[in-house]
């Protein structure tokens, strides 16, 4: 698979159009985080995969390629799971790293 050029997705906070997109994405993040948490609680691996897939495709365009990569890793791991034995624990590490990354943008250190 071709890795996208990370520089192609760098946004400029001083550009009004870019700023609008960054702001929108940051505004949506808390909702995605709680959606991920709910999917984990409900053990809904399919829903978790859907959220990861959307974040993978969208985050880089909003200037958050790191979230995109973490989401891609989670999606990849979910795809490797045998659906009948789908166990949240198997993707726990990927979920945690995606969540902590998202959290770091929600409450900047």
């Amino acid at each position: 698979m071709n890795e996208p050029d990370p520089n192609a997705f760098s946004l400029d906070i001083n550009d009004p159009e870019d700023a609008e997109l960054i702001e929108y994405f940051l505004g949506e993040l808390p909702e995605r985080v709680s959606a991920i948490n709910s999917a984990v609680t409900d053990e809904d691996i399919k829903e978790l995969g859907r959220i990861a897939h959307q974040l993978k495709g969208a985050a880089p365009g909003f200037g958050f390629p790191a979230i995109g990569s973490a989401a891609a890793q989670l999606e990849g791991s979910i795809k490797e799971l045998d659906e009948s034995f789908a166990d949240m624990k198997a993707v726990q590490a990927e979920v945690e790293s995606l969540l902590s990354l998202c959290q770091s943008y929600i409450t900047p250190k």
């Binding site: 609008e20 949506e28 495709g57 969208a58």
Partner: peptide, 10 residues
């Protein structure tokens, strides 16, 4: 994905 709508709209 609403993200994609928002992104392409801009």
């Amino acid at each position: 994905s609403q993200f994609v709508h928002r992104l392409l709209d801009a």
